[in-house]
Amino acid sequence: MTLDFNKGDGLLPAIIQDAQTLEVLMLGYMNEEALTKTAQEGKVTFFSRSKNRLWTKGESSGHFLQVVSIAEDCDQDTLLIKVKPIGPTCHTGNRSCFNTPYNQNFVFELENIINDRYEHPVEGSYINKMHHKGVHKIAQKVGEEAVETVIAALYESENEFINESSDLLFHFLFLLKEKGYTLEQIAKNLEIRHGQPRRED
């Protein structure tokens, strides 16, 4: 990369983005030394303007940002760094320093589509029909799709397994909406449970 550090008196803004969800997590600043250290160690290191030194995100909390890719913008004066975050990024404990919606990939977008179908029902649509049949029918459908996914995993092709898994995930999102819950609540619960001792069956 040919970067222009002169525009910002030796510093470049670095946008940090979750490589999986594409959610913007934070903004920091890097000098040449911070960028070199980031590239070499695979963990995001900034130049802290308040501390006037290099600062590796997570050096005290353990919530490192593992580098997936680094890109420059068209003017060579801004960086976009995609990362795998280890724990929450913000010092407040939130996953992001920005109050962005939790719908940054298609799974979350699909959840929004289902929500929209509830708020703006389309007569004759599948979601509208199932919604009127109620939670028992939707839950039954999740059970059926789960069984079909297991069968596909054991006995059918990769394509069949992917299709059945997609049906299962769609109906699970549907059931979450019917019950009044969100995928974000499930994700947060999984995060809380992560690392806890597994319960014996």
Rank of each mutant, 00 (worst) to 15 (best):
V24T: 12
G124N: 06
I186R: 07
T89E: 06
H120R: 15
D18G: 10
R198Q: 10
D73W: 08
A19I: 11
P101G: 00
M1K: 08
V150D: 05
H131W: 05
E41T: 15
E32K: 15
N94S: 13
N6D: 13
H91V: 09
K84I: 13
R198N: 07
N115V: 08
Y181D: 00
I113V: 14
A34D: 01
T149V: 05
D18R: 12
G134Q: 07
E191K: 12
D9S: 15
Y155G: 08
F47Y: 13
V122H: 10
F174D: 04
T92W: 02
L65R: 02
K57L: 02
V24F: 04
R49I: 04
N31W: 01
W55T: 06
R95M: 12
Y155H: 14
E41Y: 07
Y102N: 05
S157T: 13
A14D: 09
T36N: 15
A34E: 01
M30V: 06
K141H: 10
S166K: 09
E164P: 13
M1P: 10
H131R: 15
E158F: 11
A153E: 01
I16D: 10
G10L: 04
L168A: 12
T21H: 05
D75S: 11
I81M: 09
I81E: 08
F174H: 13
N94T: 10
H63A: 05
S60Q: 12
L54V: 02
T38I: 02
E72K: 12
I192D: 11
D9W: 10
T78P: 05
V122D: 07
F47N: 02
E109G: 13
C97M: 05
T149G: 08
T92V: 08
T38W: 00
A146Q: 11
E191N: 12
R193A: 13
I162C: 07
H131S: 14
E156T: 03
L176F: 00
S60K: 14
T100K: 02
P13V: 07
V107T: 14
T36S: 14
F64R: 08
F170A: 13
A71I: 00
E23P: 02
L154G: 15
F47S: 05
K57F: 00
V44D: 00
